[in-house]
Simulated assay, not measured.
Amino acid sequence: MKEEDIRKHAFAMPVHSPAYPRPPFRFVNREYFIISYESDLDAVRAVVPEPLKVEKPIVNYEFIRMPDTTGFGDYAETGQVIPVIDMDGRAASYTHAMYLNDEGPIAGGREIWGFPKKLASPSLSVGGTDTLIGTLDYAGVRVATGTMGYKYTPLDRDAERAGLGDVSNYLLKVIPHVDGTTRICELVRFHMRDVTVHGAWEGPAALQLFAHALAPVADLPVRRVLRAKHIVADLTLDLGEVAYDYLASHEVLKLVNR
């Protein structure tokens, strides 16, 4: 390969056959099952990076099914998203943990935005005739089970669209150098764009989290389930921006302290 060709075509690994296409990515009929629960305030604060702030011990456990995604195909994911206050004093979300069953979005999500994705076996389906069921298995062990009454009460679609599209989302992106030191350590901000909500419902729900050494979702324990909702929507995962550079701020701090 010539140097010019490398610079022109290289955007992802491996160069000769990237694990994912170029973004952005469009999701059609993306299905969310979100259980909001009260957890332990100290435990939640311990996993949310500064300068984001936690005011309440609330965690959103999400099961998501993506049957039609440009470049990624049909897959599922699950994980924990924490409501926070960002540097501008606005309500936002911080994605703490994610578990997927598809290589492309794991690689692309981690390398581009810094999504905290690991390979596992999540699922989202309807059980029997009246129960929405979300599960997570890691290495053959059940880690999470969520259930909800199927389409019990309709929710306002415009309000749910605003909740998906108008809120800033944050990630902690870490990429090592070839010598094992940290090359990139950034707080990344991103948004969902062009959101269309096809349906939204709430209903009675339950959530169980089980201890696992490599999928520690139970480290944010369930004290009380607050509410649950089921949303079907189309949306685009937009490109992100660096909201805070931890390495740059560290260098500035060292200069100030000299």
Rank of each mutant, 00 (worst) to 15 (best):
H212I: 07
M98Y: 02
P18Y: 06
V225W: 05
V81G: 00
G146P: 02
E55L: 14
S123G: 08
L255H: 15
D5H: 15
H9G: 11
D156R: 04
S93N: 11
D102E: 13
P67H: 11
A46D: 13
L220F: 07
T182M: 11
R90N: 12
T236S: 06
A248R: 15
M13K: 13
R161S: 06
M98L: 15
L239T: 09
T131S: 07
H230F: 11
D156P: 01
G203S: 07
A162V: 06
F72K: 00
G199T: 03
D102P: 00
V44G: 06
T95W: 08
L239W: 08
T145G: 04
R224A: 10
A139Y: 10
M98Q: 08
G203N: 05
I175G: 07
V197M: 02
R26Y: 12
D166S: 14
G203K: 03
A46P: 09
H230C: 00
F11D: 07
R22D: 06
G79Y: 04
A12W: 03
E160I: 12
N169G: 09
A213G: 09
V59C: 13
M148D: 01
Q80T: 12
L214N: 14
E202N: 10
K53D: 12
E62W: 12
E62P: 01
L239C: 07
I231E: 01
I82P: 01
R258H: 13
I106M: 09
T236D: 09
Y61L: 10
F63I: 04
D86H: 06
A248P: 08
D156Q: 04
F11E: 07
Y150W: 14
T147G: 03
G128Q: 03
T70A: 12
E77S: 07
Y138I: 04
I58Y: 12
K2I: 13
V54A: 10
P83M: 05
V44N: 05
G240W: 04
G73V: 05
Y138K: 14
S168H: 13
L235V: 07
V48H: 10
S17R: 14
A233K: 01
L155Q: 05
P221A: 09
A211V: 13
